[in-house]
Amino acid sequence: MSKRLFSCLLLTSLALPAWAAFDVGQLMADLARHKGGKAKFVEKKYISLLDKPVVSTGEMTYTAPDKLEKRTLTPKPEILILDKDLLSIERDKQKLTINLGNQPEALAFVDSIRGTLSGNRAALEKNYLLHLSGTQDKWVLTLLPSDQKIATLLQRITVSGSKNQIRSIEYLQADGDRSILSIEPIETK
């Protein structure tokens, strides 16, 4: 895994002279090379009604290009699996399966994270305007919803990371509530 990651990076640095401008296309190409991995996450949800953020922690595993597993350990165990357009949530012995094809808003939401993970620019640009700042080592990608329906739910998504590793995703909802998902990769041999 790390070996492949290393060779990816090596290839990237060979292919890209340091002075080349870092743009969305470049970032997407980097991300697309990321074939998957395991990470710890901490998610904080700031909700206006609550005096403190709701914090959840766990692990997530990504397998390129379209399989994502989010395993929440605290405060309540929950397993969320996204496989293509099927989202299943397992909690309290109950399993809920949602076909995202039936829910365009939810799909747009999911596409923001999946599109970023897989470096699928077309999928992202279907629903969002992309804006990139920073350098290859420390970049911030901002997604602004272009669709009116999504804009009624979501103001902005901010993804930040380093090279082809996403470090955090912040969702700012239309009502001002926001959540920050921090990702810490687990190095596997």
Partner: peptide, 16 residues
């Protein structure tokens, strides 16, 4: 409140 941490709970938020 725990449920709000989950996407399953997001539909609850407006009614909380």
């Amino acid at each position: 409140i725990d449920l709000l941490a989950s996407p399953a709970g997001m539909m609850l938020k407006p009614m909380l």
